[in-house]
Structure formats: C-alpha cells, structure tokens
Nucleic acid binder design. Structure first.
Length: 429
DNA sequence: TCTGGGGTCCTAGGACCC
DNA sequence: TCTGGGGTCCTAGGACCC
C-alpha cells in the first residue's frame, strides 16, 4: 500500500501545431507556426520552425522574411479546436488512471503506481499511452515518469529531447549514475519553477545544472529564494512536496481581455468590447458557481509606441451585493469604463477582471437584498446559459456588446472548427 | 501596419490590534 | 539613559506557469 508514488506527466508535442496537422496531414513536414490572438506572436512552432531558431513568443511581423524564405505556414489560433482536442486526450488518459490532474490545455499528471503493473510496468504503460492517444486522437505525446511532479516534468523533457528514450522516460528505471549524469547535462533553467529571472541568479551562485540544484543546500536556497526554491530542490531529490490536484480549485479571479484588431478611439467601441468580455467572464463565473463582489476594468494604449500619448489605467468598481448577473456586472464595468475613459487616445486593448469571488451558496445576506429580483436574475441567467450551450457561444448576449464589433481582433488564417461545427466538419473524398 | 491572454503563489512592509 | 512582544490583515510587487 505504501508504494513509492509514481507520477506520469503526459504532454502533447507542439500541441497547437499538432492539432492543425491532425486535420491537414499533408502539412506533416511543412514548417508551421500558430499565432497568438490577434495574429500577434508565435505561440506554437513545429520542429522545423524550432530548428530555424524561431523562439517562443516572437512577433509574427518580425519573422515574415524568414517565413517567406522557408515557406512557413502561419495559422491563427483556433481555441475551439484545441479545447476540444484537449478534452479528447483527457478522456483517453482517464482510462489509464482515474487519478488525474489536468494541468494545462496540453498536459496532464497521472498517479500510476497502483495501476502500472496492469500494463507491464511504467515504461510499458507509457508506450501504450503514447500509442492509444495517437490512434484515438491523432496527437503525438511524450510521457515522463518519476516519484515527484518536478522530476516527472524533467523526465518528460528528457523523453522529448533525447531520441534514445523514444518518447517515454521513466527516470527511476535508469541507474543512479545514469540519472545523475543526465541531470548534470541539463541546465538548471529547464527545471519546472526556475524561470528566466532565477536561473541567472542561481548561476551566480555556481548552480548551473539540474544536478547542482539538486545537490545545493536547502537552507541556503531558502534564505536566498524563499520556500518555493527549497521545495523545488526537495522535489529534485525525490521528496514529493506537490500533490496531485484532481479537482481544480475554483478560480479566485476571472479575467477577460483582448487587444483590438485596430486601435480604437471612440467610447462606444470600448463599451462594446467591455460588455463582450463581461459576458464571457460572467459565464465562467456561473460555471464555477461563484459570485463576485467587484469588477475591475482597464484600458491600454499601444505600449510599443511610447511616443504616442498613453492612457493606461484601470479602476475597480464594488458591487452593492455580490452577483453573477451579467447585466449587473456589465453595468458596473461600463460605469468604471466611463470614469477612466479619456477622448483623444488610441486605445489598443481593454479588459475586465472579476475579483473578490466567493461561493454562491454561502453568501452573506444583505439588508438591501430583494429576493424577487434575485429569482428573476437567476432565471434569466440560467436561460441565457442554456441557449448558449445549445446554440453556441455568444448566440444570446447583451445589447451593450454591439452587433458590428468593428474593434474585434485579427484572425486571418484560422482553420475550420473541424470537431464542433456541423458545417465545418472535415470531408473525406 | 504588425508585439497574447490567461492564471497562481510567496514575500515584504505597513497599518493596526492588544 | 532607558521605549515590548506577539499577532493579523492587506497590498504591491515579483516570481513562476502554460
């Protein structure tokens, strides 16, 4: 019963790019990037593009020459497709182990120590995961197995980068010298939790490799970097500090914002955008059964053009009573917007954040509550959510969000929503 | 012309309490 | 001359993740 924990980290290779390729197999060897919202930056790159030295997050316009030279295909992001593909992968993984944490759109942790033997051990289980995900969804994954999450991340990194693992690495199937050898070979900056700020500071202390970090003194790490780095170090030594989070905790804040396709000056356009984002955020709020007590609204000009006049500001509007009513939240957000809006600026972005969230079921009553209003609001919101679930997002929304939406983001080369729209299904000839 | 959109956790310091 | 000790809460800022 007290077997050493075994975490498996399953991670889809070049996730967004791979999703595109599933439906356009002819692109299997074409260099591809997928762009962020508004067709801004490269957020996913195929191996061919990585080989050309294109880094994560490079603005598309800066790589246009390179793209032309090497025939790089660029896709606008298609989150409807990626979200659906992500759910399909999760379904396959749940079959392998019921103890699963969906960590991000393209990654999941599984606890496998009690089930691995059913597949002939962790390594064999990893192979079968790879095979089945590929066969059932078309997506390539790598699997890393280890006794802590941080080590599983490292094992996954090795499975991806080192051909000898063939996509599956069980760190503790290696001999100790082998394991430490790999650690000595990998930069400390690759460790989960060590980012671009801390890596150079570690280096200054003579901590270069994963092995150096593993062997560092926890006390020293704690005094220089705090408890987080101390934990990273313990995890690297095989002492599990992080647990599997099977149930995603409710969010403490919900944000919705976008850059505009073109800069915007009129209050009317900003109002439409803000109302649109509130619509979406309120939907998420109700989905997790929360209410919020304050709405933050902000506007931004183009921060890459400091020579232009800037009005980058925001304000928080408190609600009379916590609410999940789109109309109440929209009213608050638009009120806030009115107070920060100044004419004569070229706005590039606006957004809202719902904060001070709490569980709807455990609300403090208020002297000023009107129960009848509450019942009406709940009925309207529930009808709205049902309509939108049935007929698609945004089918029913507030009038304030507008009909033209001239400010909406660029998305010039989005592939069809192959798996969620009848009229965009792939056709087999 | 063109530069994403979400989130979380931890720490330090100040205000305040008894 | 000398000026306690223990705590909470909040906020801003910094770091990280995908």
């Amino acid at each position: 019963m007290n077997a050493t924990p075994q975490f498996a980290l399953v991670d889809v290779n070049n996730f967004y790019v791979s999703c595109e390729r599933v439906f356009q197999p002819a692109l299997a060897h074409t260099p591809i990037v997928v762009l962020s919202n508004n067709d801004g930056c490269a957020v996913a790159r195929s191996n061919e593009v990585k080989a050309l030295g294109v880094k994560m997050g490079v603005p598309w316009f800066k790589m246009k020459d390179l793209a032309e030279k090497h025939d790089i295909r660029a896709f606008s992001s298609n989150y409807t497709l990626y979200g659906d593909m992500s759910n399909r992968v999760a379904l396959v993984l749940r079959d392998f182990s019921p103890e699963i944490e969906i960590y991000s759109i393209d990654e999941a942790f599984l606890r496998i120590e009690t089930v691995a033997h059913l597949y002939g051990g962790a390594l064999a289980m990893g192979e079968q995961i790879r095979h089945r995900v590929k066969q059932w969804t078309g997506l390539p994954v790598c699997v890393g197995v280890a006794p802590t999450k941080t080590l599983a991340k490292l094992a996954n990194y090795m499975a991806k980068k080192r051909a000898e693992f063939n996509g599956v690495c069980d760190l503790h199937a290696l001999s100790r010298p082998e394991r430490l050898g790999y650690m000595a070979d990998i930069d400390a900056g690759e460790v989960w939790g060590v980012g671009p700020r801390l890596a150079p500071r570690l280096k200054e202390m003579g901590i270069q490799s994963v092995l150096d970090l593993r062997n560092a003194s926890p006390k020293t790490l704690r005094s220089h970097f705090g408890v987080v780095m101390e934990r990273v170090c313990s995890e690297l030594r095989g002492i599990a500090c992080l647990e599997l989070e099977q149930v995603a905790p409710s969010k403490q804040q919900i944000m919705s914002s976008r850059s505009f396709g073109h800069s915007v000056e009129a209050l009317e356009d900003l109002r439409e955008a803000v109302a649109t984002y509130v619509d979406r955020a309120a939907e998420k709020l109700r989905e997790q059964g929360s209410v919020c007590a304050a709405v933050h609204v902000f506007v931004q000009c183009n921060r890459f053009r400091p020579e232009e006049p800037q009005n980058n500001t925001g304000t928080t509007v408190a609600l009379v009573a916590p609410s999940d009513d789109t109309l109440a939240l929209t009213a608050a957000a638009l009120h806030g917007l009115r107070s920060i809006y100044r004419p004569g600026f070229r706005y590039k972005k606006t957004g809202i954040m719902l904060t001070l969230l709490s569980d709807k079921g455990v609300q403090q009553g208020s002297l000023f509550d009107a129960p009848v209003e509450h019942a009406r609001s709940a009925a309207v919101m529930s009808a709205m959510d049902q309509v939108n679930r049935l007929y698609g997002r945004g089918m029913l929304r507030t009038g304030a969000s507008g009909t033209q939406q001239r400010w909406s983001m660029r998305s010039e080369n989005r592939s069809p929503r192959f798996t969620t729209r009848w009229d965009e299904l792939p056709v087999v000839r």
